[in-house]
Design a protein around this nucleic acid. Structure first.
Lengths: 212, 212
DNA sequence: GCAAATTAATGATTTATTCAAG
DNA sequence: CTTGAATAAATCATTAATTTGC
């Protein structure tokens, strides 16, 4: 009720408008990206809702996040990973025009992404269960309730994924390096989140309430 | 660790699975469809979140619904409306192969769908605001808190959309007729909603909590 | 060094497609 | 076959990198 919210105008910017709601977006912290990447690389590329909540709670130790942000992240991650894979395939096909079925070994090439749209046991290593899920925050973290230690080697432990990972997909280049380099968990610039209209994202579907 | 024998496949059911949660889906009541159609036809083809909640609350007077159901309904409605439009266009183009720009009047043809990705003032007639939004439930409604009367003519009033509608799109054929024919608001077969894993649909995004 | 301008990366939204219940 | 649900693809829009001129 009381839906007398602010002026429902300005779907996008009008250019000369200054009363923009300035819909700001979540900016994941380096540690959060680490966690997300590790989960994704561990094979859980499409976590179900309950797992997403768990992931969100874990990420919240490093800055405020919403479930939707986590969901979006995985969705985008999946999509872009797939697209990159396709582009690689296309460029290879275009490059070697007619040299198909070159029986290269299993190591380097592109691996097919294995979805698991329904469920998944758990992330093998980072697991989200109270196992050894430690993230190294480089300096002056408050050591909150979750056991987060600052260390460099545990970051590698984060990526252990118990031997077999879901997606090979060699792409440590993008952000991981800079993360491990210049991480500083002190700046908590928390956005405010006006989220005027996100059409997706609803909590209840398929009748959570019965309501006779 | 426990990755062996947990075949990460089964994106959907394997068919032979018996421990299926049996994801049952929402079955909108005729009155609910009426409301939804009227809102859609009134021009609000993509209601923002708060409007969706309002719509859901209105629909709940006729049976249990979730916000996600409402969102899905509009999404599918938009999509299929557009597809039908396209098919009509395609068939027309294929039929009259080269007779383009036949200056026919404004009445019949296909109108372009006008999205409103961000907001919308309100539904003109049905409005969801406590205006004259009455839906005719054919018999023995409980006349709950919202002023819902049973009447045949108000159904036409429901579709009034105050003079100018958003999408002409002649398609009263599909469901509206059967609705007005065999409506009976008494059967409240409420589903249970197990919703094992709906990856979309989350309530919070863009940092609802601050949580320093 | 710094800030405006430009580009790249990516979070969020919408559309198209697919699957499956009824 | 219709249509609710789910997901992938495409697109939009904002934030971070970066370049550029001073």
């Amino acid at each position: 009720m009381e839906s007398e919210s602010q002026d429902p105008n300005t779907p996008r910017n009008l250019g000369t408008e200054r009363t923009e709601p300035v819909r700001s977006r979540w900016t994941p912290k380096p540690e959060q990206i680490l966690i997300l990447e590790s989960i994704f690389n561990s094979g859980m590329v499409n976590p179900p809702k309950d797992e997403t909540v768990r992931i969100r709670k874990l990420l919240e130790k490093f800055g405020s996040v919403g479930d939707a942000n986590v969901f979006y992240w995985f969705q985008n991650r999946r999509s872009r990973s797939r697209r990159r894979q396709r582009q690689i395939q296309a460029s290879l096909a275009g490059e070697q025009q007619a040299q198909a079925t070159a029986g290269g070994g299993g190591g380097g090439g592109g691996g097919a992404i294995q979805y698991q749209s329904g469920f998944m046991v758990n992330s093998p290593c980072l697991g989200l269960s109270p196992s050894s899920c430690y993230v190294g925050s480089s300096s002056s973290s408050s050591s909150s309730s979750c056991g987060l230690v600052e260390n460099g080697s545990v970051v590698d432990d984060l990526f252990c994924y118990s031997g077999q990972m879901g997606i090979p997909e060699i792409e440590q280049n993008s952000s991981m390096v800079s993360i491990l380099g210049g991480s500083d968990a002190s700046n908590l610039q928390y956005q405010f989140g006006n989220c005027m209209a996100m059409p997706e994202l609803f909590a209840d579907a398929t009748l959570p309430v019965v309501q006779i």
